[in-house]
């Protein structure tokens, strides 16, 4: 690879690395596995760099690789990687719940979502990418992005105990309401 291409790749990789690592971690919930995926993405991106270096958003390609690897692995029957605990306290003690939620990192917050939904949430709401951009990166239809976003946010609303006070009785969490129902 020519020197200028090498330089441009190194600059891009350095700039993208922090966000790319967090994207991978958000999907898989394991920093070591996340870095494996980031390494793979950088390697594939390097091989294609002469062709993709002029793309408007080369980092999108790296995210495509990471998302594909993560989603692909979870579909395999032998894939039984340890899952992050989904154990937000079930008690309706609002203060305790708030403390627990306030200590979560992104992987813990997103646990319970499918890998593709996690990818959609991170790209759409944490990286502020448009629906079309997310669709392009994940290779899915824009309508699927919208639906996955809606479903994921609904799930997260319950999981993170973000209550709509106009509907919920004071001190009663959403899961508690569901159990009561």
């Amino acid at each position: 690879m020519r020197a200028e291409l090498e330089d441009s790749f190194t600059r891009l990789a350095s700039a993208e690395l922090p966000r790319l690592r967090r994207f991978a971690y958000g999907i898989c919930g394991d920093w070591h596995r996340a870095d494996d995926m980031v390494q793979l993405a950088l390697k594939r991106m390097y091989l294609r760099w002469p062709r993709i270096h002029t793309a408007a958003d080369p980092g999108a390609y790296a995210r495509t690789v990471v998302a594909r690897v993560a989603i692909s692995e979870t579909r395999r029957p032998w894939w039984r990687r340890e899952r992050i605990s989904d154990a937000v306290p079930e008690v309706a003690a609002a203060d305790d719940v708030a403390v627990a939620v306030d200590r979560m990192d992104i992987a813990q917050a997103l646990s319970g979502l499918a890998p593709k939904q996690r990818a959609v949430v991170v790209l759409r709401f944490l990286e502020d990418r448009s629906v079309d951009e997310v669709a392009e990166i994940l290779g899915i239809a824009p309508g699927t992005v919208k639906r996955q976003s809606h479903d994921a946010i609904a799930h997260l609303r319950r999981r993170l105990h973000v209550t709509d006070h106009a509907q919920a009785a004071p001190g009663v969490s959403e899961p508690q309401k569901e159990r009561d129902a």
């Binding site: 350095s14 967090r22 390697k43 390097y46 992104i106 917050a109 991170v122 709401f125 997260l156 993170l160």
Partner: peptide, 21 residues
């Protein structure tokens, strides 16, 4: 809340970019 959780997410180790390259 997601953004706050994202801000709290920091890797426990440094990524060796030189080796990766």
């Amino acid at each position: 809340r997601l953004r706050a959780a994202d801000d709290r997410s920091s890797p426990p180790h440094v990524f060796d970019l030189d080796t990766g390259l």
